[in-house]
Design a binder for these strands. Structure first.
Length: 355
DNA sequence: AATACGGGGGC
DNA sequence: GCCCCAGTATT
């Protein structure tokens, strides 16, 4: 059965399946646009199962837009710790602040206005508009491109940004005017649970409409070109304590990777050649190797070796560095590789105490 | 158009 | 290992 000649039947099949089978997710029990907004930011490039506990904690801690606006950045980052893409939470606060100050705490319900808010791109705009306000707007994410490319045999390369416009146009033509929320969420739910990279077509509620399935070519879609292999960066990290059992950490730059999160001092080994960097880490201190591991980011890999040692007597501490007690270290927002090091440090401590 | 930006789960 | 995830901002 062709979709283009049976749009109403397709909508009916998708919606009835979605309304019957949809997962019970925390953000599906609210119509508060702010809560929908928070969930959509968290769900960017992040799986549902990962998001759920973060969403629950975040809403409990910042139940209103006003409460979020007042939060310190370190508290925000602590709530986001381990979730990744940390600029998302800064942008979220910035966007919410704009709404509180310029829109009387009412999330604007037009694509033009909502798209001007920090952190809200084409997908998130459509998601909030359709889910929170019931407006017929496209919300094209990776799921939707995979589902639609199979349904309609669209073989344009989804790695090319301009290709997304094709899918947005298809959705605007296909979207259910009565229930745009369930339509958009239904497509995403389908992509997340059935029309997965390895599709489970026998469970699919709309397979009779699917051109790829009819030709047995579902695994050929979507078409996506390969990406370049990423860089491996050797880094050395130093978990140093003083005679008061305080640990030396520094706040990362406010720009770039893991911005404003805390770490044990760390250098890329290539830069260890320079005398300046050498001087910083060589202070006549005895170092022992603590652990080594690789940490994979989206665009690079750290090949990390961490050393630990005791700083005795007087040493000049560079600007931006600070000694923290165990309890204070615990409370700092840290990226996952630093959490791994900290876990190892704590194990060593309890091991020593136990013996 | 290409790149930066986290982290984890599935195979 | 590789792929991909309810993407956006910057260049």
């Amino acid at each position: 059965m062709q979709i283009v000649e049976n749009k109403d039947k397709f909508r009916e099949a998708l919606l009835s399946w979605y309304l019957r089978e949809k997962r019970d997710l925390p953000w599906r029990n609210t119509s508060n646009p702010y809560y929908i907004w928070v969930s959509e930011i968290m769900l960017q490039q992040t799986r549902v199962d990962t998001v759920i506990p973060y969403y629950e904690r975040f809403i409990a801690r910042f139940p209103t837009m006003e409460s979020l606006v007042e939060a310190d950045e370190s508290d925000l980052l602590k709530m986001w710790e381990g979730l990744g893409y940390y600029s998302r939470v800064r942008n979220l606060q910035s966007g919410v602040k704009e709404v509180v100050e310029n829109y009387g705490s009412e999330v604007p319900a037009s694509r033009k206005e909502i798209s001007e808010l920090k952190g809200i791109g084409p997908y998130t705009a459509g998601a909030i508009l359709s889910i929170a306000f019931g407006l017929p707007e496209h919300a094209v994410d990776g799921n939707v491109m995979r589902v639609i490319s199979r349904l309609l045999l669209i073989d344009d390369d989804i790695a090319i940004p301009r290709t997304k416009r094709i899918f947005e146009n298809v959705i605007m033509d296909l979207i259910d005017q009565e229930d745009p929320s369930s339509f958009n969420q239904g497509l995403m739910e389908l992509g997340a649970t059935i029309c997965t990279p390895k599709p489970k077509c026998l469970l699919c509620p709309v397979r009779e409409f699917c051109l790829a399935f009819n030709e047995g070519r579902q695994e050929e879609f979507p078409v996506k070109t390969k990406k370049v292999k990423m860089k491996v960066v050797p880094v050395a990290s130093f978990a140093m304590r003083n005679e008061k059992n305080e640990w030396l950490l520094r706040k990362r730059s406010e720009k770039g990777l893991l911005a404003n999160l805390w770490e044990f001092p760390m250098i890329e080994l290539a830069s260890l050649q320079t005398p300046k960097e050498l001087a910083r880490v060589e202070c006549d201190i005895e170092l022992t190797e603590l652990l080594s591991f690789k940490h994979v980011f989206s665009h690079l890999t750290w090949d990390l070796t961490c050393y630990t040692g005791l700083i005795q007597g007087d040493h000049k501490i560079p600007d931006g560095y600070h000694f923290f007690s165990n309890k204070e270290v615990e409370e700092l927002p840290k990226p996952v590789p630093v959490l791994k090091i900290w876990d190892e440090v704590k194990q060593q401590l309890t091991g020593n105490d136990g013996k």
